[in-house]
Every structure is written in C-alpha cells, then in structure tokens.
Design a protein around this nucleic acid. Sequence first.
DNA 1: TAGTTGTGATAGTAATACTACTATGATTGA
DNA 2: TCAATCATAGTAGTATTACTATCACAACTA
Lengths: 251, 251
Amino acid sequence: MKKIEINLHINPKTYVKNPVTTDLGKKILENSVILIDELGLEDFSFRKLAIRISSTESSLYRYFENKHYLFIYLLNWYWEWTSTRIDLKLINVKEPEEKLKLIIRTLIDSSMKNADSPFIDEEILHRIVVREGTKAYHHKLVDTENEYGFFLSYKTLCKKISDVIIELSHNHQYPKTLASTLVETANNNLYFAKHLPRLTDIKEEKDPEVINDDLFQILHHLAMSSIKNRNENQVENKPKVNGNKIELLNL
Amino acid sequence: MKKIEINLHINPKTYVKNPVTTDLGKKILENSVILIDELGLEDFSFRKLAIRISSTESSLYRYFENKHYLFIYLLNWYWEWTSTRIDLKLINVKEPEEKLKLIIRTLIDSSMKNADSPFIDEEILHRIVVREGTKAYHHKLVDTENEYGFFLSYKTLCKKISDVIIELSHNHQYPKTLASTLVETANNNLYFAKHLPRLTDIKEEKDPEVINDDLFQILHHLAMSSIKNRNENQVENKPKVNGNKIELLNL
DNA sequence: TAGTTGTGATAGTAATACTACTATGATTGA
DNA sequence: TCAATCATAGTAGTATTACTATCACAACTA
C-alpha cells in the first residue's frame, strides 16, 4: 500500500530559508527532532546539531534565525499535521459525536498508517510536543510572535475542535476553552502518566495501548459531560461565608 | 487589621542555604520574582540579579545551585501558598460544592486580604506561574527532580482538590485528572485571555474582575459537568468507519 | 562563460553558567 | 576575650552558547 506523502504549509516567517527545499534543510528537520528528543530543548544547541549532521553552525543559521524559531517551525508542523490527520479521518463521517471521538483519538495518537512524512518522525515529534510543546508560546515574546502568525496553526486546530463541539451542542457556552483544554489535557496526561502519575487517573501501565485507551475514556468523559450539561444559569460566585472568620486567626 | 504572617515550608533540596534565614537570601527571593517577571525566565540570569541587588554571582550560588533550582523554589512557594490559602478559606465550610467554588476562586486569584508574605510579592509570582509555571516540570530531568520531591507541593495541592471532587461524587472515575486539569486550565485561560484570546471563551476585557468572573463560570461548569455526569459505561473507542476510505486518496 | 545558489571554513564577540580561591567585617560562644 | 564561623564581597578563570561576519569554492543555471 502506497502512503500519502504529506507536504504541509508552514508559516514562512518561522524560517530564513525553506528547509524542505534542500538536502541540508531536510537533514536539519530530521535530526533536530531526534536531538531535541534526546537532549531536551534547553540542552539542544545549533552547535551540537551541526556536529551531528557534519555541518557548521553558520550553515544552520541560514535556515533558522535561532533554535527557538526552529522549535516554532516544528510545533507548527505538528499542529498542521494533526489538523490534516483530523481532516482525513473525518471524511465521510456525519455524526458529530463520532467526529469528536475521532478527534480525541487523533490528539492522543501521533502516528497514522495511511499518511507519512518523508523526513520528520512524527512519533518522536509527538514526544517532544508532549514534553515541551507549551514552551512555544509560554514566554515573554508571545505577543510579537503572535503578530507574526506563529500560532495560527494551533488556533486553527482548536477552531476545528470547537466547531465540532458547537455541532454537538449548538448553544454551548465555552467551546473554545473546551477545545484548547482537550488538546492541553491530552498532552498533560500523557506526560503525567509517564512522569507524575499522581496527577492523572491513567492507570500506571507500560502498555501504550492501555494508556491511550484510558486517556480516551477520560477525555471523552470530560468533553461529553460539558457538552451535555446545558445548565445555562450562572452560578453565584462570591463567597458568603468566611472572611470574618479568618480574623480569628489573627490573634 | 493585622495580617497573618506566612512562613511556608519549602523542600530543602531546592536550595543550598535557606534563603529566608538571611537578608541577602530574602533579597534574592524578592528580586528574582520581580526580575523573572520583567525579563522572562530565559533572559533572567544570576548575573543580572546580582547587579540588581548589588551583590555578586558567586554569592547567589551560595543559596541556589542554579536558576532552575531557584525557579523550582519559587514554584514550590506558590503551590504551598495556594494550598495554605485553600485551607484557610475552607475552615468552617461544610458543603463540598461550596468548597469547590472556593478552590476555583483561589486558583484564579493570587492575592489574599488576610494573609501576607513579607518578601515575595504573590501577585507578581502568580503572573510568572501563569506565564511559565509549567516549565518547572516540563523538561528532561523531571524524573530525577521528582525523586528529590520537587513536585510534592504540587501533588499535595492537586490531592486536596481531588478529595473535594470525591466528596461531591463518591464514585467519580477521574478525580485526579479533573483536579490537575482545573489547575492547569485556570492558568492557561488566564494566559490565553491576555495573549491568545481565540483559545478561550473569556471575553476580551481589560477589567481583571470581569476576566476572573468569566473564568470562574467556565471552570465551575467544567468541573460540575464532569462531577454530575455519572455515566459509568465505557464508550466504544475504536473507529468503525474509514481506514479503507482513506485509501481512495492514495491514487 | 558569467552569475547565482548552497555549503563550508574560519574567526570573532558578548553573554551565560558556572567554579575556585581569597579577603573581611560581624557575631557568637567557650 | 579570643578563636571560630558566618555572611558577604571580590577577583579571576573556564567552557559553552548564541550568535555575526567574511571568504572560499563547487555545482548548477541562464
């Protein structure tokens, strides 16, 4: 069976020179994913990458302004890749509830049997995203980079999810938060299951199939609970008790 | 009105010498919070901090092994501080639903009228936590640092929340994930509201009171939906459709 | 054949993230 | 009251990062 070759459109502002157009560019993408996975983002450097691919630092700077931009490129690739996989899976699916299930599955799994990228290893990239993906936008320069459109692919992905939520519950009050929460919670719980198991209900297990099934149930429950709960009356927010009682402790 | 002076217990493995025992130590805590807020974690350095407080790099290294450990210290302080605030607020509260509301409020707000820390500015620290708090555990050395107990305070905080969830719904299947999701979603949505508004349903607003009220409703809805949904039958996970249909695209 | 493209080689700068060692005034406790 | 130690400052040095700049050169392209 021939696989579909994926060529994703990535925001040109993330790179100086389009890496997919040359051999060295492709080598940069392929090996940066492997090296970031091995070393972690902070210990990864252009020098180490240059040594690994028998090139030079200055050559790498011809493709990406710095390692952060390269990281942003990879994240954009991941978000586009995930959106594409969702699109492919949703072809011919009419039922919105089935759509949501397929979306959740896609957020948990990184691989896709029928589609394939020539140089980026999606499974390794997914590991990176789970471990340090949020670093792409959690820093001082978000606003500038947001103006460059660095997070458009992420927003598009979330929009796609929130549209399905709205299909399921036309008047849902919080589709955007629910969408981004599903994406973030999927990654967080995969990470927690591996490193901080007390923060998740995924059973401590080695088998990734079982972990993914657990997580599917968790996310599905979270999403469908919110979708089915059409309680539209706002809740009393301000606390009535306490405040004065705390003063007792002031003695 | 006299405020309660807070002195929190922080894991001694995070520091070389306990910073609260000396003047320089307190200055380090106070000013690192301010400087990290100003510069962001990556641009913050011991050199810059030393200059700011008219000390030297080598002096700072007597308190913290490196800036990451100092960051971990601050995060632990925040988690302990949040746990303490929850404890104080829940005194004399019997109703579990009221407890959950107070917890959500505490996760959103950083300040507390009745309690106060002498050197760490909790509002600035909260801003740091919202922007880059997850960096504390999203890196290559989590497992080692987890063994040192660097994340115990975070786990304790989540445990506290999940206990209330269990109080509300004795047989809830996913209290741990729901607890950590509430904490993470609170921070994420505060961040999104400021920088990536399309990822949240918080209305674009300048008034922090309105933002916090919006977020309260969102988190309350998310939590109570899941708690009230006692649908215990597992959902069919594997997709039945597609798979073969995708092959049509292989031409 | 001249020009462009892609890459490599070399060198240099400023900053980071430390480590090591010395010096000094203040406190304390035997 | 004298020695010890504590808290801090100062000075110097190393390895690495995160770049920037310049020149050389081979391959391909018009």
